[in-house]
Amino acid sequence: MKQLLVFVLFAALFCWLMFSPIYKHVLIIRQALLQQEADYMLEIGASGRYGYIDGSMIAESRERLSRYGFNAPSLQYEVASTTGADATNAFSPLSRGIGIRLRIAYPYDNLLNIDRLIGLEPPSSDSRISGSGMKMSEFVPAG
């Protein structure tokens, strides 16, 4: 009986040692992709041509991230400005010098449940990984 218990405990530890690094790498890659997408969207949205991040840009971003395996409806986008003005309005772009903040969040999707094998509690179901940033708008109104 004692040998069976040792075998079960060893098997659980062995499974965790084999598969935990893989899931951790998936988590790191997801976070890096979210940060890369946030940086890209800020670069485009804060450029002199736009001065905003609107719904169509967010839809294109969802499509790009879904190609990497993200579930598009689970992605959350938060766009704000440093002045409180609407940073998603294409008809009223933010003027040069006003900051655009963007945060893209995605749930862990039970990715770290394997940590339960060694007694670690995984993140709650409402916890999210995210990529975020802020860039100053370069848009200059004509006229």
Rank of each mutant, 00 (worst) to 15 (best):
E63I: 09
M134L: 10
Y77C: 08
L33G: 02
P141Q: 13
I104P: 00
R96T: 14
Y77S: 06
Y108N: 03
W16S: 08
M136Q: 09
L33E: 10
A85Q: 09
G84P: 10
H25M: 09
F139L: 07
T88W: 01
A80T: 09
G45H: 01
N89L: 13
N71D: 08
V8D: 02
H25R: 04
F139P: 03
C15P: 05
S47C: 11
K135M: 10
I98A: 11
I53F: 15
A142P: 00
L42T: 05
L33S: 02
P123A: 13
G119K: 15
N110L: 12
K2M: 01
A32C: 00
L4V: 06
G99S: 05
I29N: 05
E63T: 13
T88V: 02
R49D: 14
D39M: 05
P123W: 11
A46M: 11
I44M: 04
Y23W: 13
D86Y: 02
T82H: 14
A87N: 01
S20R: 09
R96Y: 07
T88Y: 00
L4G: 02
S127W: 15
D54N: 15
G143H: 05
N89V: 12
F14E: 05
L33F: 08
R67F: 04
G69H: 10
C15S: 11
M57N: 04
Q3V: 05
G48P: 07
D39K: 03
N113G: 08
L117P: 04
R64P: 00
P93M: 06
N110R: 15
R30K: 15
Y77A: 06
S124K: 09
S130N: 08
V8R: 04
S61I: 00
L27D: 06
G51P: 14
R101S: 14
G51V: 09
G45D: 01
E37P: 03
G143C: 04
I100Y: 12
L34W: 10
S92V: 09
A32H: 00
R103P: 01
S20M: 11
G48Y: 04
R49K: 14
I100F: 12
